Structures are given as C-alpha cells and as structure tokens.
Simulated scan of single mutants.
Amino acid sequence: MCGRFALTATPDQTAAFLGLGEIEDFPARYNIAPTQPILAVLSAGPREPGSNLPDRMAMLVRWGLIPAWVKDTRDFPLLFNARSEEAAGKASFKAAMRHRRALVPASGFYEWKKQPNGRKGQPYWVRPRQGGLVAFAALVETYAEPGGSEMDTGAILTTNANADLAGIHERMPVVIGPQDFARWLDCRNQEPRDVADLLRPADPGFFEAIPVSEAVNKVANSEPSIQERHVAPAAAAEPEKAKRRNPGASDDQMTLF
C-alpha cells in the first residue's frame, strides 16, 4: 500500500531524473496524501522528425483515480492505489493501464506497521538507501464532471512487498527504474502484457525503512522533522525483550533489516 509519500527534490532535479524539459517551480512536500495534487509524467505522444520538444510531459493530477464511466463520485471509493496484478483486467483501471500509464516521482514513502488488531502501529519513512528519487508506476484518467469540467486523476500501482519491507506491510509501490521509463510510458507500442515484467517488488536492499514519529499521521504536519528517526516506546521495548531472551545479541543485530 502507498497512502503517503514525499517529494523533496528540487524541480530541476526532478526534471533531470524524469527526462523532462523545464517544469514549473514547486516547494518540497514532506507529507503528500490522497486527494491532493501530485506530479505525474506521461508520454507526450509522437513528435515530428527533428522536433526539439521533449517526448514526455508533466501534469498535476488529483491523487485518487476516477474512471471515466463513474456517474456519481459520491458513491465511488477513493482509488489512490491499484493492485498491479489485477489492474489490466479491472474495470476501474484497464483503460488507463492500456492508454495512460504514468510515472510519479517521489523521494520515498511512508508505511505503518500493522498491529494484530488491525490498527496502525509504528510509522516508517521508506527511502532509497542510496538517496535520490524514485518513480512509482502510476495510472492516469481524465474524469469529465457532470457540469462539463474535466479533472485529471491518478493512482499508484502496488505489488507484494519485498523481503526488507514485508515485516512492516504486505504491499509496496511499484518502482520503475530509469532504464525502463520509456518502455513503461510507451502506450502506443507496449500493451499491458508487454510491461507486466516491470510490475515487481524493488530489489532487496534498495530501500531503507526509518522509524518516525506519529506526527506523520496528520496531513497538516508537513515539515522535514517528520522524517527524523523516532521509535515509539512500545516499539522500542520489543528489541529489549528480544535481547533479554538472547543476552549475547549485539546492538547491530537489533536493526530493522
């Protein structure tokens, strides 16, 4: 699952990473939530021979996809994630999966470790171990409202969590590597079955998970401090119990991964 993420890179860094021309200036965002606008990158379509225009375009979309066939959004759930294993066959996503695949740049995402009672537990800031940006696989759909106005909407694709993150949550966003950007975005020549191999968990060791405070739970909290390491008392007590069971364990064996 991906219910919160951050984009703290500069516009220039983001544009260079995604192979874009100049993009509008935007501030660092530390706690992006569903229904908020997010940056999505799509193929710009065919270009005339010799054109200097970039072959990718950036646009702002509402995070929460609304299929074109929805009549009343009040009766429709908020689709901010799409299961990658099912997207090509699901009525809500199959048109976008075929025609409007996108990339969403991020500096990382947040995940909450599930508790036995189903409640959210310790939150984690999950970021690339080597730093920099990642691009989540996404889908975009333009929804025409009854009044005639249009709204661009999007969802992030998820897959099974890799071994590093499975202990926190069973799902994680699909990450598309730079070497695969062109193939993922090429909806003219690459059908969903042709890019299915890209819908896989990130390699082990790619991400690191940092425990953070519950300040991230509130969307209004959007400062750099919400990404600082913080272990809730209950979570901190678990390694101590484990150490008592195994007195010879060293501190470096108590890390998450």
Rank of each mutant, 00 (worst) to 15 (best):
N221C: 01
T142N: 08
V126P: 03
M151F: 01
R127K: 15
G167W: 01
N162K: 15
A137D: 02
N217E: 04
A215S: 15
G177R: 15
T159H: 01
V140H: 05
E150G: 06
L198M: 12
P192F: 14
D164V: 15
A196P: 01
A155H: 09
Q122M: 03
P201T: 14
P201C: 03
E223R: 10
T153D: 09
N217I: 04
A137W: 03
V175A: 06
Q190P: 05
E145V: 05
A209C: 07
N221I: 10
A161T: 14
V134S: 01
M151N: 05
K218H: 00
A163D: 15
D152M: 14
L133F: 10
K120Q: 10
P128R: 14
E208W: 00
D164G: 14
G131F: 10
M172V: 12
V140I: 09
N189I: 09
L165N: 10
E145D: 08
V174I: 11
I176S: 09
M172L: 09
M151A: 04
I210C: 13
E214H: 06
A202Y: 01
D194M: 09
Y143L: 01
A215K: 15
D180E: 10
E223I: 04
A182S: 10
P123G: 08
A182H: 00
F181H: 04
R193K: 10
R129T: 00
R188A: 15
Q130G: 10
A161F: 07
A202D: 04
T142M: 10
R183C: 03
P128W: 11
P146L: 08
S149L: 11
G132R: 05
C187V: 15
A182P: 01
T158S: 05
E223F: 08
G148Y: 03
E141D: 07
D186W: 00
P192Y: 11
N160K: 14
E191T: 14
R188P: 03
P173L: 09
E141G: 07
N217L: 01
E141W: 02
Q130C: 09
L133S: 11
A163L: 11
A220N: 04
W125N: 14
V134I: 13
G147S: 05
W184Y: 02
S213R: 03
R129S: 05
A220P: 03
W125A: 13
E223T: 11
A209K: 13
L133Y: 06
A155L: 11
